[in-house]
Amino acid sequence: MARCEVCGNDYEMAFEVHAQGAVHVFDSFECAIQRMAPICEHCQCRIIGHGVDAGDHWYCSAHCAREADPRLADLVRDRV
Results as ranks from 00 to 15, higher is better:
38 P>D: 03
33 I>W: 15
16 E>P: 14
65 A>D: 00
7 C>I: 14
44 Q>W: 12
44 Q>A: 09
62 A>Y: 01
31 C>M: 07
45 C>Q: 07
71 R>V: 13
14 A>G: 06
41 E>G: 09
76 V>I: 07
26 F>Q: 02
79 R>M: 12
27 D>R: 00
35 R>W: 10
38 P>L: 01
77 R>K: 10
1 M>E: 15
51 G>W: 01
28 S>T: 03
63 H>R: 14
68 A>S: 04
28 S>P: 04
31 C>K: 00
79 R>H: 13
39 I>V: 08
22 A>N: 14
57 H>G: 05
62 A>N: 06
65 A>V: 05
15 F>W: 08
43 C>P: 01
32 A>C: 09
27 D>S: 04
17 V>M: 03
69 D>H: 11
22 A>V: 13
35 R>T: 09
44 Q>I: 12
52 V>H: 04
57 H>N: 10
1 M>I: 15
33 I>D: 09
79 R>W: 14
59 Y>K: 01
54 A>F: 10
43 C>G: 01
1 M>D: 15
63 H>C: 12
66 R>N: 11
62 A>M: 04
5 E>G: 00
53 D>Y: 14
48 I>Y: 13
31 C>E: 03
50 H>Y: 13
21 G>K: 05
57 H>S: 10
72 L>P: 01
42 H>G: 11
65 A>T: 00
56 D>P: 00
30 E>M: 07
59 Y>H: 01
54 A>W: 09
9 N>E: 11
15 F>T: 03
78 D>Q: 06
1 M>G: 15
53 D>R: 10
73 A>F: 05
10 D>P: 06
78 D>E: 06
73 A>R: 07
66 R>L: 08
71 R>M: 13
37 A>P: 00
46 R>T: 06
71 R>D: 10
57 H>Q: 08
32 A>P: 09
69 D>T: 11
72 L>A: 05
38 P>Y: 00
46 R>W: 08
21 G>Y: 04
69 D>M: 13
77 R>T: 06
71 R>I: 14
77 R>G: 05
55 G>T: 02
44 Q>P: 06
47 I>M: 03
66 R>T: 09
14 A>C: 06
1 M>Q: 15
68 A>I: 02
38 P>E: 01
57 H>I: 11
1 M>C: 15
10 D>W: 01
37 A>G: 02
74 D>L: 04
2 A>M: 13
29 F>P: 00
47 I>S: 01
79 R>Y: 13
75 L>V: 09
23 V>M: 09
61 S>Q: 01
45 C>I: 10
50 H>D: 14
60 C>A: 00
23 V>A: 11
12 E>N: 14
52 V>C: 05
77 R>Q: 10
6 V>G: 05
8 G>E: 02
65 A>C: 05
21 G>P: 07
64 C>L: 14
78 D>H: 11
55 G>Y: 08
80 V>S: 13
15 F>G: 02
58 W>C: 13
7 C>Y: 13
70 P>E: 03
34 Q>R: 12
64 C>H: 08
29 F>S: 12
17 V>L: 03
78 D>L: 04
71 R>Y: 13
5 E>C: 03
23 V>E: 10
28 S>A: 04
66 R>W: 05
22 A>L: 12
44 Q>G: 07
9 N>I: 12
21 G>V: 04
25 V>Q: 04
